[in-house]
Nucleic acid binder design. Structure first.
Lengths: 201, 201
DNA sequence: TAATGTGAAAACCTTCACAGCT
DNA sequence: AGCTGTGAAGGTTTTCACATTA
């Protein structure tokens, strides 16, 4: 979110930004901003603030957002096709370079410029294309199995679209996209407008 | 996640479950499970554990998951169409009962069993159909405006698919679905396998 | 004057450990 | 014997407040 806001600021012509202003944009306190940044370096100038362009570049480098991250997709059903055709990944360096499906009907079908391959090819493709991230778009009942296969094949990051809470070891980085869970985590607060939703995003 | 795990347990024929077992399934400590539940009531029996069916019903009621939550969709582009046709919402009580788009070309087109309506109809439709949740699937540059319109029209919960951090007042409940941000929050840990990713999901 | 970077304090959250119930 | 519910302890995170510097 820091990088995103800094990109916006840069594109709006800002050269310098204070923790105060960043806090306003990110809905955080200025103290939080300064503490966060202080863990990674001393990026600011007292009396002035942070150089937008400089801070943005530093953070992009620290977070690894300045490089390409090849990914593979498992499952080319409705959701999988939407993912592969989603234009938001490539400009941020996330490139789906291979797609797999267990359904023989789907194999060799061209989707979004790549050919769907059988699950047997997984390990080889991951090694060949230096794939570090696996995107899981298979039905819930197959998701844990597929995630295990991806990890066995050498993937260390998982973006999981299946509505389950996958079990993975501590050295695997997993993020879940689960719209139903997101909605279900809102309803309590919709009923109790007096309750303060601490977790806002 | 509690409700989901309890549903699984029920369907697998379990009658009782301990905080120990729940902890195993949810990757949490037994103490955390007991503490969480204790904030809402005393659902367990000492020496025995929690009755699966009973705890599930209680939590569903507390969280408001035992009722219908009519929602509306803004933006019927590629993503919006995928959302409206997604079969996972309805069984959980989240029903998209109205769809809107600012593009006159889309108006009155039937998508997923409902007619696309112009933005002017928003307030009326929200009142008529008791809509409490708005699902935002418009381009980033329009998202904040649309969210403001939804809130003005009376919606209190927002499920936002646009890659922005919307600014909303404290009494609005918002959840963001942002796959790119999810990927971007993984890369640091993919580079530093020694760093412990505290935030795992 | 204006804003950072940072120890210290305050607030918050998780885990421990055990009395007490089944 | 087994497991909950819960004060107290232990950790972690956020905020405060100010010395410091441009």
């Amino acid at each position: 979110m820091y990088v995103r806001v800094l990109t916006q600021l840069r594109d709006s012509g800002y050269d310098v930004v204070s923790s105060q202003q960043l806090g306003g944009l990110l809905q955080m306190t200025p103290a939080q901003i300064r503490k966060d940044l202080s863990y990674f370096g001393r990026f600011g100038k007292q009396g002035r603030g942070y150089n937008v362009q400089f801070l943005r570049e530093e953070l992009r480098q620290i977070l690894g957002l300045d490089r390409k991250w090849p990914a593979c997709l498992i499952g080319v059903g409705r959701l999988g096709q939407a993912i592969i055709n989603y234009p938001g990944f490539v400009p941020e360096g996330f490139n789906v370079v291979a797609a797999f499906d267990s359904d023989p009907e789907q194999i060799a079908r061209p989707i979004g410029g790549i050919l769907v391959r059988p699950m047997e090819d997984l390990e080889q493709a991951i090694r060949e294309s230096n794939i570090t991230i696996g995107i899981v778009a298979v039905p819930a009942r197959e998701a844990q199995k597929v995630i295990d296969q991806l990890i066995n094949a050498g993937v260390r990051g998982i973006l999981n679209y299946a509505p389950i809470a996958p079990k993975v070891s501590m050295d695997i980085v997993i993020r879940n996209i689960d719209p139903v869970l997101s909605l279900q985590s809102m309803t309590f607060y919709l009923m109790h407008e007096d309750a303060i939703p601490i977790i806002r995003r």
